[in-house]
Amino acid sequence: MNNERKPIAIIAAQHFIYRLGIKTITGVIGVDLDVYEASSFLEIKEYLTNQSCDFIIIDEHILEADKNDLQSLKLLCPQCKYLVFCDSLNSRCEHPHAIHPTDSQKKTLEKLQKFFFEPEEDNESQDPTTDILSEREIEVLKKIALGYANKEIADLLYISINTVITHRKNITEKLGIKTIAGLTVFAIMNNFIKPDDVKH
């Protein structure tokens, strides 16, 4: 392995002026790249079919109408980092690395810096819920969400019914969610259980 190799970036935009602009900016923030320019979505796909890259910077207009197009790229190159230049506020602009039309020059540069230099954040680590509930409460929550009654939960977790009730009370207080249906949604949202596991 050659550790000295430059990171490879695909810069994809229809017009060369756009690509040139992006290339220039990467120079400004001091990142040295091997750039491959693409002017269509197909070109990116073709490139990725034969080789991998580290960064992909895409102008939103190049993406096809289907909103899964980004996902299809991710399948081709799972380890790549993506950045999208957006023109409007739509689904793609929800992407963690997205430059919005309202972003100022300073903000855009900051976002690019972050994109190139900061390691990808683990989605789980920013999850607010792991801090909110204790491990035991999560166990109880899972059982509630799966549809078990207090007595069953007590038996499954080898604790008394009173303990189950106390956990339930604390869970509801901490989350602000009272109903079983609500707790189930919460548990699925946070990957504590799978949607198919719920017995109905």
């Binding site: 607010p128 969610i177 009272k178 109903t179 249906a181 609500g182 949604v185 949202m189």
Partner: peptide
């Protein structure tokens, strides 16, 4: 009750 849950699911989680 469910309405209040819904609010918190969106607002907090």
């Amino acid at each position: 009750e469910k309405l209040s849950d819904l609010k918190n699911l969106i607002l907090k989680f």
